[in-house]
Design a protein around this nucleic acid. Structure first.
Length: 171
DNA sequence: AACACGATTTCG
DNA sequence: GAAATCGTGTTT
């Protein structure tokens, strides 16, 4: 039996998926064939056209296009000219949502995370359900977590900047 | 064609 | 506290 999460796992509201990802295993097969497993420890939810902190809130563009599709695909983008952010699309086609991977037990911070895992623009649109180089597996544990405001999105204004859509696994 | 601005990290 | 650094969306 495979422990890899299937399409149904991602095809739910982002507020269900984001906290559920905590404690699960991010698996990466590197260019050298080496398999690495990381424990997801921090996530953030970006929810649709209403959420002014969500890149999709200002309409469909070439960059955010994947967010408008079905769940399970990676949305990658560059911030501050030097850090790649990794997100997984959730929900159904036509409803743009994504979970930002902000931390692993092995690396804290979204920029450090992608550097450690070794993912960048080449993973834009990668399907976590079918990919042979990156996916997420059920770990068997569903740890307690703490929710708080998202980081770095004050520009979105109220109520978005205060929504408790950042999820941290408890120790 | 030019410009403004980041879902961050690192260094002083 | 501020720089580094560049793709993306917007304006000219």
């Amino acid at each position: 039996m495979s422990k890899r999460f299937g399409r149904e796992f991602y095809s739910r509201d982002v507020l269900e998926v984001a906290p559920r990802l905590l404690g699960q295993h991010l698996v990466r097969i590197g260019p050298d064939g080496m398999k690495s497993t990381y424990v997801i420890s921090e996530t953030e939810a970006y929810r649709g056209g209403e959420d002014l902190a969500c890149h999709a809130s200002k309409g469909r563009t070439p960059r955010n296009e994947v967010m408008f599709g079905e769940g399970g695909y990676l949305y990658m983008y560059l911030v501050y000219g030097m850090y790649w952010m990794m997100n997984v699309v959730t929900g159904h086609e036509g409803v743009p949502q994504a979970v930002l991977f902000r931390g692993l037990r092995e690396a804290s911070g979204p920029g450090r995370l992608t550097r450690l895992v070794g993912v960048d623009r080449n993973f834009y649109g990668e399907d976590l359900v079918l990919s042979d180089r990156i996916w997420i597996e059920e770990s068997g544990s569903t740890p307690d977590y703490t929710a708080g405001p998202r980081v770095g999105i004050d520009y979105a204004g109220e109520p978005w900047k205060s929504m408790p859509w950042r999820f941290l696994m408890n120790l």
